[in-house]
């Protein structure tokens, strides 16, 4: 037995398991994406069993590309992911800077800030859409109603009343509607993932070279210029990592979409695949392959960065 045998044996179970986990379902998806395969068909019962004789070539891909829902889902996926990224990075940077200085109760502030990240996505969505954003029973509705009755009260004042009587009745926004449900998803996911960004940025800020900063202060550099010229370059890599990790997670966002609107007018790619899966497996598989391609574009960049830092 050579010196290398034992280490290899120790890795083998992990490698084999992951290989099976990746290759078996994915190759089935690839196969299904090239055949006609539906779960129910009275007219063509032969299509309900996967078989090579039902070969369709790129037909499923064509079908998916021509489905109007597909482009909408891609667009919506990108819109949701993009908005979440912008919000979490900006909020995360600001909060990390804020918490990075020492002050009384900093430990508790950190604990409070990080908590949303550990809430299970299903609870997050149910909590936000019902108890916070609901236009009648949630805090959203209660707050708008409170505002309306306050304005109504102010109308009785002398002079000022004339001004307030010009104000309209406010209407709470319904976040279950087609146009707004994406915003609800963005809000709840931003709430959940900003703590993640804060945590990463904070860790990185603590490794910042303090002596360099002090030198900059002695040279008369202002707070903004120090942030711009020292902190931002130092944070470039953590920002890139936060962006990529979140992209991968949020491209497969599912529970939130399902709970907020059941995908009604607010589909993303995973949701659309789920819909196709209820009957048209061929189309679901083709859409799945597109999702894999989309995720890979992001993954390649992330893996490069991670790989670089691996051995030093």
């Amino acid at each position: 037995m050579s010196k290398r045998t034992i280490p290899r044996l120790l890795q083998t179970p992990a490698v084999i398991l992951l290989l099976l986990w990746m290759l078996v379902p994915l190759s089935m998806t690839l196969y299904f994406s090239f055949i006609r395969y539906v779960l129910n068909s009275l007219r063509k019962p032969e299509w309900t069993k996967p078989a090579f004789s039902n070969w369709r070539g790129f037909g499923n891909y064509e079908y998916v590309l021509n489905a109007k829902d597909f482009w909408f889902a891609i667009q919506n996926s990108l819109f949701i992911v993009g908005s979440i990224l912008v919000l979490t990075v900006i909020l995360g940077l600001a909060l990390a800077m804020l918490v990075n200085r020492s002050f009384p109760g900093r430990g508790i502030v950190r604990v409070l800030l990080i908590s949303p990240f550990f809430v299970m996505p299903a609870v997050n969505a149910v909590l936000w859409i019902n108890m916070i954003l609901d236009p009648v029973l949630g805090l959203n509705g209660i707050a708008v109603e409170g505002l309306n009755s306050m304005v109504a009260g102010l109308k009785d004042f002398p002079v000022l009343g004339a001004f307030f009587s010009l104000w309209p009745e406010f209407e709470p926004i319904s976040f279950r509607a087609t146009q707004t449900s994406a915003y609800a998803v963005i809000m709840m996911v931003t709430w959940q993932w900003t703590p993640f960004a804060v945590l990463i940025f904070m860790t990185s800020l603590q490794s910042e070279d303090e002596s360099q900063k002090e030198a900059a202060i002695l040279d008369g550099a202002g707070a903004w210029s120090r942030f711009r010229n020292l902190t931002v370059p130092h944070l470039a890599r953590p920002i890139a990592i936060v962006v990529m990790i979140q992209s991968i997670f949020h491209l497969s966002l599912y529970a939130e979409i399902e709970i907020v609107s059941r995908g009604n007018g607010n589909k993303n790619l995973p949701y659309l695949i789920g819909e196709f899966t209820s009957n048209n497996i061929g189309a679901a598989s083709a859409a799945g392959i597109f999702a894999v391609i989309l995720a890979n574009i992001v993954a390649i960049f992330l893996l490069r960065m991670v790989g670089k830092s691996l051995m030093d």
Binding site: V24, L26, M28, T29, Y254, L269, P270, S285, L294
Partner: peptide, 8 residues
């Protein structure tokens, strides 16, 4: 992406 291999 999990959704891609849901049906298999």
């Amino acid at each position: 992406p999990a959704a891609a291999v849901l049906y298999p």
